[in-house]
């Protein structure tokens, strides 16, 4: 019972928070659509960096799933 309340409250609360952000209309997204505002503005550059850091550091993973392995690590 308590769990349900928590879940409902959480959902309602996050929806309210999301709604607080929701003032950006579809035609107001000119700045957001700029290439330099994308998550990954140069895909080859970030792929290369990921590959280098993967082979020189112990950490990997992030906002996408891993690709293939290499003998570099």
């Amino acid at each position: 019972m308590m769990l349900n309340i928590k879940v409902i409250l959480f959902v309602a609360f996050s929806m309210l928070i999301l709604n607080a952000c929701s003032q950006v209309r579809p035609w107001e997204r000119g700045y957001l659509s700029k290439k330099e505002m994308s998550w990954d503005s140069d895909i080859l550059e970030s792929a290369l960096n990921d590959h280098i850091f993967f082979s020189k550091e112990a950490s990997s993973g992030g906002n996408n799933a891993a690709g293939g392995g290499c003998g570099c690590n």
Binding site: N4, I8, L9, V11, M15, N19
Partner: peptide, 20 residues
């Protein structure tokens, strides 16, 4: 009390849905 909280959260949920 629990019922009141449930009702309250139901209303919040409904309001959120309407707003969204």
């Amino acid at each position: 009390n629990i019922k009141a909280v449930v009702n309250l959260s139901k209303s919040i949920f409904a309001v959120a849905l309407v707003l969204i």
